[in-house]
Nucleic acid binder design. Structure first.
Lengths: 363, 363
DNA sequence: CCGAGTTAAGCAACACTGTTGCTTAAGTGC
DNA sequence: GCACTTAAGCAACAGTGTTGCTTAACTCGG
């Protein structure tokens, strides 16, 4: 008789509804009103008034004027006060790091790239430099600002809960390195979240719902947004999209199998054949859509950025050809914003996301 | 500004905690105590006492004696009163239907199989017969019992929310048939849930957490239990495990692709080659494990039941060979209980499950 | 121009949740 | 037999969203 699920008390109830309201306001950049919030949450207008009053007192929300009347008193427009909180997002690659400072609304206030990466030095030294970069970003905020935490996107495998890396390819010295705790220690206990770069990139996508982000660079990976949240799996290592076998008797892959999607793609890329690579990616995507019934696919990564239209068109074409009912099973294929900055923006979301939605049993 | 997520009030809070307590008691067949419930939920003992008092008054829970003392007053043992509620589970196949009557604890009180299936007659007539079978099962309950609802497991595709079938293979007359509403209408509005047979089979598995149930019979499908709940996807049609492409230039499949796992398996089965079929299944399972980081796989379906040990051993062997770190990524491979009864038991769970856990934003 | 109608938002009292502080019940162990 | 320990209940409480009503602010028709 023990389990994860926790009971909830009045504090939890309040926090849940408050997060819900904040989330709705964030999703409405033009500003929402109390009435709309009441309709969207199912709570009474009076309850919303109380919640909003607390948020106004905390300086998290502000009134920005009046909407147009619909026959009576016009609605008072509300919006998040972006400067009520800041977060730092890091995209740590092998050779360089992109740092982003974002406000509560997720808008990037500052961005920089530095030649510090996982392969730059010993882990302890790299962490020191990363912490310094994070501090520098924090120093850009107005004096006395609330800093909510730091999100880091880097290559996996890693354990999300503990923030410990697990044998990252070609980076033996990082094996079992507690990146999360090491960073937190050097930043006075500021909350730190470390996730795979593919998950961070998926979080940077606009919109919500079910989406698979497919990443093609040195390898082929995926970030899965299922029911609006990153799906991580039992050992927080889900998303190994590239090592699905597509050709039983195919070429050997570094992972030990034969005919992995990644091995096939990299072989085609060696010939500069983006069309074949895209077709293979589309085939893998079709497998994924059928298994998970996902209705949106986003493509990103260095390779995709080289020939974005080829990838978008070819993947869309493969899905159309391979799914028996393209109208019922329609899948939107999009290009994700290019570059490491979007990973850093997604890392921000690791910090900000929990403020805007709670599952109400998370604590 | 609109979305699914609903705000929660005191009623929702109470229902959430109540369901949590009931769920913990169900999971502890030997009986739990108030103290244990408090520890497991994080609520205060007093709050648990109040919740338990309500459940005792409702007759849903009963005290069954005292536990052993640990130095002080012994704990009062509590357990669910199984006869506090009943549900009916139907496993509807092409040619026959298994009906199960289960109590609140999920124990089967009555079971029967009838030669009525989707292909037996026109849909309207079949629904009439199914409703009659459900009524017959309900009549086995003591007079005045509370009947909670009916769960149905049948072949897909179908829409879980509306309970409408969508072009089931070889059953054209059932296309777009509103099975859920038709059954509910003939059963005086009793709650009805209709889900794919593979999802029902997954729900029948003991234990919780992340599990993939792989089903091999006429076709190859899967039911995905992610984070303890059935994952259904955007159009509630997730689990199309059999139509993943494993061999790009393989034989043609009925779905229009080439080299689907299902096509390869069926070809091997035509030769009676269970070893090859099992090996292919294991390859597909490895793809799935890498994508979803699942730590438990259950095997079922008519074909598996014919040679269960071959399938278990071969799938386990494939996973061991194909996952680079068998200790970190250990996957338990089990055999699911055989037969249609287990699908019917899982269908029960469609009704009972929501009583024992709520996501607290489901309404 | 003005009053009726409409819509938004606040005030006050309320119902009901889990919490807190204390008491009572029912065992163990020296 | 008494001190100690653990379980469970009682009573008062803090704080949530709800209900009923009032006030604010705008539209519209005559």
């Amino acid at each position: 008789m023990d389990a994860q699920p926790a009971g909830t008390n009045l504090t939890g109830l309040r926090d849940h509804n408050t997060a819900l309201v904040m989330g709705l306001l964030r999703a409405a950049p033009r500003g929402g009103s109390r009435v709309e919030l009441a309709a969207a949450t199912g709570l009474t207008p009076q309850a919303i008034s109380k919640i909003v009053a607390r948020l106004l007192a905390d300086g998290v929300v502000e009134e920005t004027g009046r909407g147009t009347s619909t026959g009576g008193k016009p609605r008072t427009l509300l919006r998040l006060r972006p400067e009520a909180g800041y977060a730092v997002g890091l995209a740590v690659d092998r050779a360089e790091t992109t740092v982003v400072l974002g406000d509560l609304a997720g808008v990037v206030r500052h961005e920089a790239t530095h030649p510090i990466g996982l392969a730059s030095a010993r882990p302890e030294r790299v962490v020191e430099l990363l912490a310094a970069e994070a501090r520098a970003a924090i120093d850009k905020t107005p004096h006395g600002s609330r800093v909510l935490g730091i999100g880091v996107g880097c290559r996996g495998p890693l354990d999300y809960a503990s923030g410990i890396l697990h044998r990252p390819a070609g980076l033996a010295s990082w094996n079992r390195f507690p990146l999360k705790d090491a960073l937190a220690e050097r930043l006075d206990g500021l909350p730190v979240h470390v996730d795979k770069d593919t998950n961070a990139a998926a979080l940077a996508l606009p919109g919500t719902g079910g989406t698979a982000y497919l990443h093609v660079a040195d390898g082929v990976g995926a970030g899965l947004l299922l029911d609006g949240a990153i799906y991580r799996g039992a050992r927080t290592n889900a998303g190994e999209f590239g090592h699905q076998v597509l050709q039983l008797d195919g070429p050997e892959c570094t992972c030990g199998q034969r005919g992995c999607l990644e091995a096939l793609c990299l072989a085609a890329l060696a010939d500069g054949d983006h069309h074949t690579t895209a077709r293979l990616l589309g085939t893998g995507a079709a497998n994924l859509v059928r298994l998970l019934d996902i209705d949106r696919i986003a493509l990103g990564g260095r390779v995709v950025s080289a020939e974005p239209e080829i990838y978008r068109n070819e993947v869309a074409a493969q899905l159309l050809a391979r799914l028996p009912e393209p109208d019922w099973q329609h899948v939107a294929v999009e290009l994700a914003p290019a570059g490491a900055a979007s990973i850093a923006v997604g890392a921000l979301e690791l910090v900000l996301g929990p403020l805007f939605s709670t599952r109400l049993a998370d604590r």
